[in-house]
Amino acid sequence: MGHRTLSLALVWRALFLDAAAYEDLRDDDNPFVEGLYLVVLLGVATALLNLIGQALHWASVPSLSAIEAVVLRNVQQQAWWPSIANDPAALQAFTERWDFSWRVIPALSDAPGPLRAALNIIVWPFTGMLSWLAYGVLAYLFGRLLGGRGSLNQTLGATALALTPWIFHALGVIPYVAIGGAVGFWQLILRYKAVRTAHVLPWGRAAAATALPYLVYLLLAALALLFSAPLTALLVALLAGR
């Protein structure tokens, strides 16, 4: 059993671009395990705090069913409503669309739900791990291709520290707080620092090794879009009974 490098102070230093923090984790006896601890802890802790914020948010808004009743009552007072109400086929079509919309709205509108927030205690560590491992492996491959000297273990350890801006999601303990694009850019900067430290590369190569995994993501997204379009068309055709 080696010593534990990971600490709150290390996370703080890594968050604010202290190169020594990345070197400490790179030189740990097993950076991967330290990184894994960090990603899981960050995911669980921020999800727990978000649960409190979501519960407060949920408690400060009326229930969705009450809102739905208000909207429906107002729709039924519109001048055009009798033309729908007096036509059974139109009424049935309206009712189907209405019910479908109100099933979809909570998911699309990010309506507060303590149950969904509780589920994040499991989901966030897993998505965090997925993001960390996918990026870490790609950064390792590109780092090596560009002449880097770091091992996979070291790259994963250092890039785990680049997830520290997730700590700002802990502000979700306060309802209605939305953490915007800042975290993504912060993470990008820290990833550069991590790749550079893990592979001891000059700035240009380190920048390329940091950016290339994003290019791979873009290509994969474009491919997914390309293949999903015919699949969606097929699904729609099947649903339409053609």
Partner: peptide, 15 residues
């Protein structure tokens, strides 16, 4: 903690 699976890079001074 486990034995590292790959040799460690010696600590290098920051670029």
């Amino acid at each position: 903690m486990n034995v590292p699976e790959t040799p460690q890079t010696p600590a290098a001074p920051p670029p």
